[in-house]
Amino acid sequence: MTPLKTTLAMASICAAGLATMAQADLISTIKDRGELTCGVHPGLVGFGAPDENGAWQGLDPDFCRAFAIAILGEPSVKFVPLSAQARFTALQNGEIDVLAQNSTMTLTRDAGLGLNFPMFNFYDGQGLMIRADLGVTDAKELDGASVCIQQGTTSEYVVRNFFTDLGITFKPVVIESGTEFFSAFFANRCDVITSDLSQLAVVRLTSDDPSQYVVLEDIMAKSPLGPVVRGDDKDFMDVVKWVVYATLTAEELDITADNVEDMKNENNADIQKFLGVTPGVGEPLGLDDDWVANVISSLGNYSEIFERNVGQDSPLGLERGQNALWRDGGLMYSPLF
């Protein structure tokens, strides 16, 4: 290479490194693209897994659809399955618009990664599942047990604190791949597997013989789950936040996918505004006024989404528990529309 060529090559590398990515606001980008990209769990029945036709089903994919309907008027979503370890990086570098992958909100993730957790859509807790034949009923009896932990989650930290506080030891087996993580437990490589309680319920149910495994009653840590967005686009964050609130408010007002059209004629100013009969809910978010009605008519309210995917109408059969509305003794509480 001649000196000139070398210099030019170097200059071009330098320029490429410095090239700035032009960033328009996310809502218009999604409208131009006609599609929302959403990061989901690669395979967790009830929370995000492809069905036999390859369509993504679950609580998280349904919320992805809700965001798309609010912005585009139709559920055009490109689902990107992501491992626990890769998910936040994929969101940071713009590969996806929003992450809905059973992600627990922590201080570091919310404040240190340049990300934002606008609100929670599932209250969970971290628990332990163990083989029934070991006869363990209390976590205190687990001294010296091997624990399967999935990498990229909050589990590694939580497990250590929990066992140290109890004054007992454990042997961690930390595995990144989701499949290997479960198969290691089922192959008896570990005595205990730890994850969010909802996930343990799924894993137990999808095993060959669920009666062989018990989920212990100890809850090691709270695990509030919710969609995640980048911190640099407040408008998009607002949309994500208020879409989730809309599903909760619809449940409060007893608006369902079936009765949403009838409810529009209800002589109630709140409901009329909420469903876009009278203007008000669209403009502050930069959306059309009928976005709530669109979301509810195709996906239903929070209760319908919950029961269909993880609740009584699903194989998982989870109770609403903490995820019930505040008026029913749960934690779900939506501000005013």
Binding site: Q85, T108, L113, G152, I175, E176, A184
Partner: peptide, 23 residues
Amino acid sequence: GVAVGYPELVSAGNTAMNQTGQA
């Protein structure tokens, strides 16, 4: 090793990356 649970450099580091976010 990270894929099969052997705690080598990348495995130990990935947990740190996940906890601190300093990729």
